[in-house]
């Protein structure tokens, strides 16, 4: 009797576990087949030999990985592309960092402003931030491009006012890419920072002032440490897509201010070096994941991790 009853319970529990796994399975299979498997193929391709007209030859080679960093003299003394690679990789990292910094510069005050509005109006201010977040990235890039292009709004305005005689060339520079990325990724900074500030208990700030803290001291010692998880989350959300950005640098930087993502595209296209492209892809993915793990670990130690 006794063992029979507990047996029944174990059976029930096992059935329940099976049922739940089978519920999760379809989603897991789809992601495994169409996201994880392609990535695995990419890893394999990075160790193969390039085919003459693109694609790969099934022959093991480390050249793909080698040429991410090094140049190699082939038959003659023509210069390899490695310098160009490295400058593009370096630019990607710097532009992604600069984008993170700029979105912080504008995003933190904005998040603070929204979080300190009356409760009833906060949702509307946040709506103004979420709309650009969910609207087409391509269209938003076209919009910011319109402002600074040679025949764009700023140049037309300055020409019309007689301030300048010839249009200022702002497009296809690092600055243009930076502006574009800051513009499109700004909402990603505001959202988590706002969530953190909104949860901040302002009585703590009052307590700090009561204990003779100056405004700056209170900000540094009380407010900032408590909203830091939100800032870290925002930085990850901006840095990761910025590092692998493709559309915005392509439109704003063209061939002159290329980024990592565009370099990958180039290797699979005109470059006809799929293993190099694959190696660049895998290294970018690894970098993104490392950045993610590191920051998650850091902000797990940063107190509240509920953002």
């Amino acid at each position: 009797m006794l063992s029979e009853a507990s047996n029944g319970e174990a059976l029930l529990r096992r059935a329940e576990t099976r049922r739940r796994w089978s519920l999760a399975m379809p989603a897991l299979i789809v992601i495994a087949l169409f996201s994880i498997l392609p990535l695995a193929v990419m890893v394999v391709y990075s160790f193969l030999t390039p085919g003459t007209y693109g694609n790969v030859v099934w022959q093991f080679s480390l050249d793909g990985w080698f040429s991410v960093v090094f140049e190699r003299d082939l038959f003659d003394d023509t210069l390899g592309l490695a310098d160009a690679h490295l400058s593009i990789l370096g630019r990607s990292a710097l532009l992604a960092l600069a984008t993170t910094g700029l979105t912080m510069l504008f995003g933190l005050p904005t998040a603070w402003f929204i979080a300190t509005r009356p409760v009833a109006t906060r949702a509307y201010w946040m709506f103004l931030i979420t709309v650009p977040f969910w609207t087409n990235l391509l269209v938003r890039t076209i919009a910011i491009q319109e402002v600074i292009r040679a025949d764009g709004t700023i140049n037309r305005l300055l020409l019309g006012l007689g301030v300048i005689d010839a249009p200022i060339q702002m497009m296809f520079t690092n600055g243009a890419v930076l502006l574009g990325m800051t513009y499109v990724y700004l909402p990603l900074m505001v959202l988590p920072v706002y969530a953190a500030i909104e949860k901040f208990d302002f009585r703590l700030a009052e307590a700090a002032y009561d204990l003779h803290a100056s405004r700056f001291y209170c900000l540094r010692r009380v407010i900032f440490p408590l909203i830091r998880p939100g800032i870290v989350a925002g930085s990850i959300l901006v840095f990761i897509p910025a590092l692998g950005a493709y559309v915005t640098p392509r439109l704003m930087g063209g061939g002159r201010a290329m980024m990592w993502g565009n370099l990958i595209d180039l290797q699979f296209g005109q470059g006809r070096n799929w293993p190099l492209g694959a190696a660049l892809s895998v290294s970018l993915t690894l970098l993104v994941m490392i950045a993610l793990v590191l920051s998650v670990r850091r902000f797990a130690g940063g107190g509240r991790s509920d953002v």
Partner: peptide, 9 residues
Amino acid sequence: GFEQPTGGQ
């Protein structure tokens, strides 16, 4: 009936 007994009736 929200829990199953380990033993008894």
